[in-house]
Simulated scan of single mutants.
Amino acid sequence: MICQEDIFMFSLQRIEQAILREEFVPYYQPQVNVLQQKIVGVEALVRWQHPELGLLAPLFFLPFAETTGVISEIDGLVLKKACQDIHELHRLGFGMSVAVNLSASHFNHKYLPRMIAEVLEETGIDPCSLVLELTEGVMIHDVQQAVRVMREVQELGVKIYLDDFGRGYSNLFWLLHFPFNGVKVDRCFIQSSTMDAKNYEVLLSILDLSRRLNLEVILEGVETEQQLQFCGQQGYGVAQGYLFSYPLTIIGLEKRFWLERLQEGLLVA
């Protein structure tokens, strides 16, 4: 039996081959408009489709990939494939955005805006449908360059979100000094908001601040009906979590959209 350690060590030997063979693929977790109960976006989450071991979660390969810098190549594969998939769904009449995570090494590359422009042109996706998700650590080393790169990417029509806001050493500096279009509130707040009074108040403060700064908001980690009700009460209509769906293949995502149309009465079963 192969244990986790064996898989990780094996991945160290195979990861470059896997990049060449395009074995890293995106799975899509829906982002749902709470009031409309409708998918309005997805987050592309990388998985390794290993030919012998099956589908591997990021914990088996991302630590090595980030340490060696090959994570930027994986980012590029996932970004291109996600844009291709979403463009095809747009062609079928399913409108949505797609959010893709970028690593620190990839984001700090001075040619990132050019690479994004090339992907947009090659895949044909509407730039307004693409969201790049960044964590604070991406921008810590060179603030001026980070702002410059963000501006260049946004000039293409692409949005940029601050991911996992509220985790670790989050503070107002990031929202006040970087030109984000939106934030994704870390799951720890919504999952503890009904049990921990302090977290509840912090969450309300984050939502109020985001509204005042005209930032779009996505609440992560929604897993219960009570949490869903909270989202609706606060007037923030977009949420993401296992209550709606686990990450799906592109085929599974397309099936979800066809099901939505059936439920809306737009198709005859």
Rank of each mutant, 00 (worst) to 15 (best):
E43H: 01
V42T: 05
F24R: 05
S72W: 01
I7Y: 03
I39Q: 00
V25W: 05
I74R: 00
R21F: 05
P30D: 07
L62C: 05
P51L: 10
F24V: 09
A57K: 11
F8K: 14
R21I: 03
V46G: 06
Q49F: 10
I15N: 02
F60K: 06
L20C: 09
L59E: 12
E43K: 04
V32A: 02
A65N: 04
A57H: 12
V78L: 02
V70M: 12
L62F: 08
R14A: 12
Q29W: 07
G54D: 11
E43D: 04
Q37I: 07
Q13M: 10
Q31N: 01
N33F: 05
F60L: 09
L77R: 03
L12Y: 07
L53H: 14
I19N: 04
Q37T: 06
E43S: 01
H50W: 11
G54R: 10
G76K: 13
I39G: 00
E52W: 11
D75W: 05
Q36N: 09
V46Q: 01
Q37A: 12
F64C: 08
E5K: 15
Q13E: 14
I7E: 02
L12N: 10
E52F: 10
E66C: 11
L79D: 06
Y28R: 07
L55M: 15
Q17S: 14
I7H: 04
P63E: 10
V25D: 01
S11Y: 02
K80C: 11
E23N: 08
L55S: 11
E23M: 10
R47C: 05
Q17V: 09
E16I: 12
I19M: 09
M1A: 13
C3F: 08
G69P: 06
Y28N: 01
V25M: 04
S11D: 05
K80N: 13
H50A: 07
Q36I: 05
G54Y: 02
E52S: 13
Y28E: 01
L59H: 10
Q4D: 15
Q31K: 15
G69F: 07
M9W: 09
F10G: 15
R47I: 02
Q36F: 03
I19K: 06
L62N: 02
L77T: 04
